[in-house]
Write a protein that binds this DNA or RNA. Structure first.
Length: 273
DNA sequence: AAGACGAAAGTGGTTGA
DNA sequence: TCAACAACTTTCGTCTT
């Protein structure tokens, strides 16, 4: 269980307000990440003079120098930001136990997002989390927004916003999350045998064919079908456990499974205590 | 004791004026 | 931008095993 009292002490990245940007044009991002060696920096100032105040000869040359230096600084800031984002993706991925494959997907998405210029005005952390969320979905092993948010240093809301924007701008065409995608993960987390897993999938599929799957959330439906399947096998885990793993409330599981059993015409009989 | 149940009130997100 | 709305959660008293 994640300690909910953890307070984020990391840098606040979301403040790309006008004044801040003006400052940043000179100084780069927050102190700790920019002046990583805490050393002095050198600038070529606007007066075309040398160290003794003499007028300089070759103005064009100095103009070019200034320009190059400015560019070098910007691009290295971008590189540092990218490095930070990728390390965050890595950190969150391992907290969630995601595969290498998914991390790569997320990293690719992140680069695309940067290339489209979509980062400006959003926190790096939120975008990184959003790419991870998207990568999981496209990989067929979705995590809920809550799960991603639990390992991110920004709110669920910010992640959702970043995700929506990204999905629109990159024209990601992700199928709606399917309840069946959750079955394997929930079952293995609860150490339910394969038979139950199979039965739960079957229940969901027949429900889908009969168009019984309404607008109810897929994680709740997945939990409900697992519950029914395990009831049929006389191996029902406590609703509390199922609710914890699925990230929904017990009440939701109850409502869904009653509803689903009714629609499928299943008689759970005396087993449904 | 432990779990299942469901009513009632509360919450956050979406939608449409 | 606001209010209505649906889905879900929290809380809690009751019932069953």
């Amino acid at each position: 269980m994640v300690d909910e009292s953890i307070i984020d002490t990391g840098p606040e990245w979301s403040a790309y307000e006008a004044e801040q940007r003006a400052q940043r044009a000179r100084s780069g991002a927050p102190l700790t990440l920019t002046f990583y060696d805490n050393g002095p920096t050198t600038e070529i100032d606007w007066r075309n003079r040398d160290a003794r105040g003499q007028e300089l000869r070759n103005r064009e040359q100095f103009y070019r120098l200034r320009k190059m230096q400015r560019r070098a600084r910007v691009s290295s800031a971008a590189e540092r930001n990218l490095a930070f984002a990728l390390s965050e993706i890595d950190r969150m991925s391992s907290s969630l136990g995601l595969s290498r494959n998914i991390r790569e997907k997320a990293a690719v998405l992140y680069r695309k997002t940067v290339d489209k210029g979509l980062i400006r005005g959003r926190s790096i952390e939120a975008v990184a989390a959003a790419t991870l969320y998207a990568a999981c979905r496209s990989g067929g092993i979705p995590r809920t927004l809550d799960e991603v948010a639990s390992v991110a240093r920004v709110s669920r809301k910010d992640i959702a916003r970043a995700y929506r924007l990204m999905a629109r701008e990159l024209e990601l065409k992700l199928a709606p999350v399917s309840s069946t995608d959750y079955i394997d993960r929930f079952c293995s987390e609860l150490r339910l045998e394969h038979e139950i897993r199979r039965k739960a999938l079957e229940l969901l599929n027949t429900a889908r064919e009969k168009k019984l799957l309404g607008a109810a959330s897929p994680d709740g439906m997945a939990a409900a079908s697992i519950y029914i399947a395990s009831l049929l096998a006389d191996r029902a885990p406590p609703q509390r456990e199922l609710a914890r793993v699925a990230g929904v409330s017990e009440v939701t599981i109850r409502n869904r499974y009653k509803e689903l059993a009714l629609k499928l015409g299943l008689d759970l009989g005396p087993r449904a205590a």
